[in-house]
Write a protein that binds this DNA or RNA. Sequence first.
DNA 1: GAACTACATCGACAGGCGTCGAAGTAGTCA
DNA 2: TGACTACTTCGACGCCTGTCGATGTAGTTC
Lengths: 115, 115
Amino acid sequence: MATKTAAVPVVDPIACCAPVRSPRFNDEQAEVIAATFAALADPVRLRLLAHVASAGDEEVCACDLGAVVDRSQPTISHHMKILYEAGLITREKRGLWVWYRIVPERLEALRVVLG
Amino acid sequence: MATKTAAVPVVDPIACCAPVRSPRFNDEQAEVIAATFAALADPVRLRLLAHVASAGDEEVCACDLGAVVDRSQPTISHHMKILYEAGLITREKRGLWVWYRIVPERLEALRVVLG
DNA sequence: GAACTACATCGACAGGCGTCGAAGTAGTCA
DNA sequence: TGACTACTTCGACGCCTGTCGATGTAGTTC
């Protein structure tokens, strides 16, 4: 086991995992981590996520995403849902618009897994 | 002939990419990064990679991988090929055995993308 | 309420992926 | 040379994924 356990809120199912260099993680953890990497394993989603992440603390309106990637509205909605369910972004509907925000802790948790 | 041929290009196509928080990366970079994350998007491959990574600088014999994951030998070979082609591990055949080694620079490049 | 807007869901399609048994290939050893 | 070993490739199967047009739903404005 890793002696250098991260002092991160243990709520995150990834954050509590040992890095990939440690002997192994269990099946459950591998499933969760793999699912999160799967959310990043599409170039369209990567660009959408980069757009949201580049706003930092600020929110990003879903209405702007059509200018980021050349895909139909249902397809973009589909991708944002995958990013949301992976815990990489938050989603809030206000009026007619939906606003997204990056979850930096989730990215950091992945960085820990990789290192 | 191709003994120690690394799938890692001289100039790592990921290492030169801006992090996900920067405004955006181009389509080409997004494709390469997404393909690398795709290699990590399977729990079996994650466990195989973790096993190789846990050896640090040392090599890991392919003959040991059957004890790491409960899959057939062709399936394990298939997964190792994907990790190799993603540049995450090197492969060297010596005699009857194949030896794998982690490519830490590749993991580090991904960490930079996430940060 | 009616018309409109922004986004989500549905249904369908093509292509990709994980898996295995069978067959192929390359190296070892007697 | 021939038997053996370790791994790769092939062929097939079912499942999953990205994509879009059509449709559904929630909120706004008049």
